[in-house]
Write a protein that binds this DNA or RNA. Structure first.
Length: 591
DNA sequence: GTAGGGTTAG
């Protein structure tokens, strides 16, 4: 007699209990399998489904032999049903095999089995992890036609999917239509914005969540902290820190890393280190965040020291760690150390350098003035086919060391590859301006206008009493505009008396007419620093966040401003931190 | 049995 396949395993049978006892270890599971066969349950679909799920979730699920065993087991199961396929899809989506999840889903469809809300949550997650936007959209249409578009789990998975594929418009549309949003749904939307660089929108959703009275959990706070890191929003970041302390939330390694990153990127390096020291568990990501923090602040030796300590603690650096430590070497001028570390990447860890690593090395050699070595490195490492990122770093080095002929050569190469990137034109124009070739500057300006290429608009942000004030070049929108401009004018006169001579070459690359008018004097960071000096007490630090790099003139002016005002000023620009104190900058004018 | 989180270059 053939035993009828049942839908669910009987929860109290000895066989089922043996399965649970075996857990997620393959050998014991195989032994239970033998018992199932001996007991004549080998055609009982429920036991076999549970067994197969456990195998797929087992610690050695990635090994070939386990996969082969799982396949044989699958083929032995009579009349696969929806439940079996859901188990397969979920296991694959959850344990890092999203492509398998999609294959199972397709097989399921081919077998004419009805998908359920469980099927869709997992297969949508798989599409998200693969960034498979085409497949995901097809699945979405099936979600609708099968009537699961009002299931909050499916909806949340879809919000994640559209977020991961960068389609925030669709993500938001779906999110807005969820009637009873769970914390996870809110988190998905916040993370979606944050991961796509839309930190302000992420914060705005969090505020809506507060208004809706939904209590954030640690995942919410992690995404919120990342948004703070992007924005340089220190006071909100500190609020998050206070919040999680007051709520008694456990500082796990993920939350701790988000805090480290927030403090480091908001200019509070010591606080970042304190959090790091207090962590119970430290994994590669946490170490990397701390190393990266030191690098951004120009503390190359500290970064290397931490890198060594990490290795001594038994952890292996990953490719991101190498980017962080190489970048730290570049910013601190630690050339031979950086070269050694770059070599060890391949030799000791079998990691293949990616474009990011090449950029760090070119930047490192280039900043140090070793332009020939940098060119040689590019030729050897990229086999003569450097990507635009590597060439951009090289061009930056040419500008820094005023090597015009090489700069033009590199720029021509770069513009041939990426003719639509305005940043390249601005950089080349800067080089010509420094060389006094105003005819070429004018030419580039015309090309940009002709091709409708706009340079990115710079802004600087300063927080006073937990309120953010944003300034653009020549900004007149602020309430205190008159006072700020007057103060700035007096300040500039004062630093001139102290020896400041404006670096006018930096003004020549201004491309828009109205920008030219204000020239250097009203660059956004100068407005921000004037506003900051006016509105803060004598001994407090001034922190400014800028979205672009500081120009030479502002950098010079800030040195003098820190001297004449006796104030410490910390500026985060696009790439790193500058600590101005008593007339000197932590970057030693090397940035 | 279902959904969400941290680190990277110029």
């Amino acid at each position: 007699m053939i035993r009828r396949a049942t839908a669910h395993p009987c929860p109290h049978s000895p066989t089922y209990e043996a399965l649970l006892r075996a857990g997620r270890r393959v050998r014991p599971l195989q032994q239970v399998h033998a018992r199932i066969v001996v007991a004549g349950h080998h055609r009982t679909r429920s036991f076999l489904t549970k067994l197969l799920t456990l195998i797929l979730c087992s610690s050695s699920s990635a090994s070939c032999s386990t996969a082969a065993y799982a396949r044989t087991l699958f083929l032995s199961i009579p009349e696969p049903d929806t439940f079996l396929f859901n188990s397969l899809i979920t296991a694959a989506a959850k344990y890092g095999r999203p492509a398998d999840a999609i294959v199972h889903y397709r097989r399921m469809s081919a077998a004419c089995l009805e998908p359920s809300n469980y099927t869709f949550t997992s297969v949508v997650k798989a599409c998200a992890d693969l960034s498979a936007s085409q497949t995901g959209r097809v699945v979405h249409s099936r979600v609708i036609s099968n009537g699961f578009d009002s299931d909050v789990f499916v909806q949340t998975a879809l919000v994640v999917f559209y977020g991961k594929t960068g389609d925030l418009h669709h993500a938001r549309k779906l999110f807005d239509r969820i009637p009873n949003r769970t914390v996870v749904a809110w988190n998905a939307m916040i993370a979606g914005y944050e991961q796509n660089g839309l930190a302000e929108e992420a914060v705005a959703i969090f505020q809506l969540m507060q208004v809706a009275g939904k209590e954030p959990d640690s995942a919410t706070l992690v995404s919120l902290l990342s948004a703070c890191s992007q924005l340089g929003a220190l006071s909100l970041g500190q609020w998050v820190n206070d919040y999680l302390v007051n709520k008694g939330l456990e500082l796990n390694v993920v939350l701790g890393t988000a805090l480290i990153n927030m403090y480091a990127r908001c200019g509070h390096l010591e606080k970042a280190r304190k959090i790091f020291n207090g962590l119970q568990e430290r994994n590669v990501v946490a170490w990397t965040a701390m190393i990266s923090g030191y690098g951004m602040h120009g503390h190359g030796h500290q970064a290397i020291k931490l890198f060594q300590q990490m290795k001594s603690s038994g952890l292996s650096p990953n490719d991101v760690t190498f980017v962080a430590v190489l970048s730290a070497c570049a910013h601190a001028g630690l050339v031979s150390e950086g070269q050694e570390i770059f070599a060890s990447m391949r030799q000791d860890y079998g990691l293949v350098p990616r474009v990011e690593h090449q950029v760090c090395v070119v930047d490192m050699l280039g900043r140090a003035g070793l332009l020939d070595e940098a060119m040689l490195f590019i030729r050897e490492e990229t086999r003569g086919l450097p990507g635009p990122e590597v060439l951009t770093a090289m061009l930056g080095a040419c500008k820094m060391h005023k090597n015009f002929s090489l700069g033009v050569e590199v720029a021509e190469h770069l513009l041939a590859i990426e003719p639509g990137n305005p940043a390249h034109y601005v950089l080349l124009s800067n080089i010509f301006a420094l060389a006094g070739r105003m005819d070429r500057v004018e030419k580039i300006r015309n090309v940009m206008i002709h091709r409708h290429l706009k340079k990115q608009i710079g802004y600087s942000l300063i927080e006073i009493n937990q309120a953010a004030h944003v300034f653009r070049m020549g900004d007149t929108s602020h309430q205190q505009t008159m006072e700020i401009y007057k103060y700035l004018e007096e300040l500039i006169n004062k630093i001139k008396e102290a020896g400041y001579v404006p670096e006018t070459s930096a003004a020549l690359h201004e491309l828009e007419e109205e920008e030219r008018e204000f020239a250097l004097r009203f660059h956004s960071e100068k407005l921000a620093v004037a506003f900051g000096l006016m509105n803060t007490s004598k001994n407090s630090l001034i922190r400014i966040v800028k979205n672009l790099r500081m120009c030479n003139d502002c950098h010079l002016a800030f040195n003098f401003i820190s001297l004449v005002s006796g104030r410490e000023i910390i500026v985060r620009d696009k790439h790193r931190f500058h600590h101005f104190k008593q007339g000197l900058c932590s970057c030693q004018n090397y940035w």
